[in-house]
Design a protein around this nucleic acid. Structure first.
Length: 201
DNA sequence: AAACGGATTGGCT
DNA sequence: GCCAATCCGTTTC
């Protein structure tokens, strides 16, 4: 199990676009009280540090909340959004460079029954994990995951050998960042073409 | 099919 | 006090 964890070097990559694309096809896993749930990452968004107006760390802003983003790559940044949803990010780059990748959607893999129970939905539709708030509920990710190491046995990302064709990786503007002015149109959202679990078309 | 509003709370002005 | 890296049920076209 542990040998499948992505290594720390993966998270120290200084190219946030590169990491955002490389995370597609990797598997995000949580292990809560020995219950494993996981899914294939099929949609990500890059938040490119202090010059990115959509980033919480824009203008090198350091607060209690953003401090997690400034740690060395390889940890989770989880924050409360709209008062009720926890959004899961992967922190990358070296210490003091606040790069983050928001995981926006996953394709369910292991523990689907448990995920449905957590989401309180009965029908087997595509709304189980097709959004950043939804996948956190499904995987049991809450505030306590903030700052957790991705080399831990609580939450991690592994490589199951899933590969996508480069031409099936699309890049488009990010979702819900209209406040970011000119940076709102940067093509920093990456997802798999025609995948049924995308958060939005 | 699209538009709208309510839920709910922490962060910052 | 206002707004936010969202979601869902309901209303309206």
């Amino acid at each position: 199990m542990r040998n499948k964890h992505l290594k720390e070097s993966f998270y120290l990559n200084k190219n946030i676009i590169d990491v955002s694309e490389n995370l597609l096809g990797k598997v995000l896993v949580t292990n809560i009280n020995n219950t494993i749930t996981s899914g294939i990452i099929i949609e990500t968004e890059a938040y490119a540090g202090i010059d990115d107006k959509a980033s919480h760390a824009y203008n090198n802003k350091r607060t209690q909340r953003t401090e997690t983003m400034y740690q060395k790559g390889g940890i989770a940044y989880v924050y409360l959004c709209y008062g009720m949803y926890y959004l899961f990010n992967v922190i990358t780059n070296i210490e003091d460079v606040p790069h983050a990748v928001l995981i926006r959607a996953i394709e369910p893999l292991d523990g689907i029954n448990e995920m449905q129970r957590r989401r309180k939905i009965k029908s087997k539709k595509y709304n189980l994990t097709n959004g950043p708030g939804k996948l956190s509920i499904a995987l049991g990710i809450d505030k306590s995951f903030n700052g957790e190491s991705l080399l831990s046995n609580i939450v991690w990302i592994q490589d199951n050998g899933i590969k996508f064709n480069k031409k099936d990786i699309l890049s488009r503007p990010r979702i819900g960042v209209d406040y970011a002015k000119e940076d709102a149109t940067l093509p920093y959202r990456f997802y798999i073409k025609d995948n049924k679990w995308i958060s939005k078309l």
